[in-house]
């Protein structure tokens, strides 16, 4: 696992059915672009998060493909509708095969 990777997610705890809610996500990751060289002139191999998905109760909200031009500590903000109470599942896919997950519950009244 890439070192020091920590996800952060902001989801409101409550909403009314059919409301639009704003979601923010951030994950600490160096997003090594594969374009840089080390002190000896060798290319530092690419090591990025290449995909991020957000789902709610098994249905997709957003599916993002990331390229090396996404900044260190990738940040996304987007909007979702929540038809019922349930769980958001956030998943980040690392080039090295690791998968980082975070879940947030929301109560819909």
């Amino acid at each position: 696992m890439a070192s020091g990777v920590k996800p952060r997610v902001k989801v409101p705890k409550n909403a009314a059915a059919g409301d639009t809610i704003t979601i923010k996500t951030l994950i600490s990751h160096k997003m090594e672009s594969g374009q840089r060289k080390d002190d000896d002139g060798n290319i530092i191999p690419r090591s990025i998060i290449n995909r991020f998905t957000a789902d709610f109760n098994g249905q997709n909200v957003i599916d993002v493909t990331l390229e090396p031009a996404i900044s260190t500590n990738p940040y996304f903000q987007f909007e979702a509708v929540v038809p019922e109470s349930g769980d958001f599942q956030f998943t980040w896919y690392d080039d090295d095969g690791d998968i980082y997950k975070e879940t947030k519950s929301i109560t819909v009244s």
Binding site: K6, R8, L26, I27, S28, N73, Y75
Partner: peptide, 12 residues
């Protein structure tokens, strides 16, 4: 405090 990227390090 969410938009501030430093906060992920505060979490750490």
């Amino acid at each position: 405090d969410f938009d501030n990227p430093a906060m992920v390090f505060v979490d750490q």
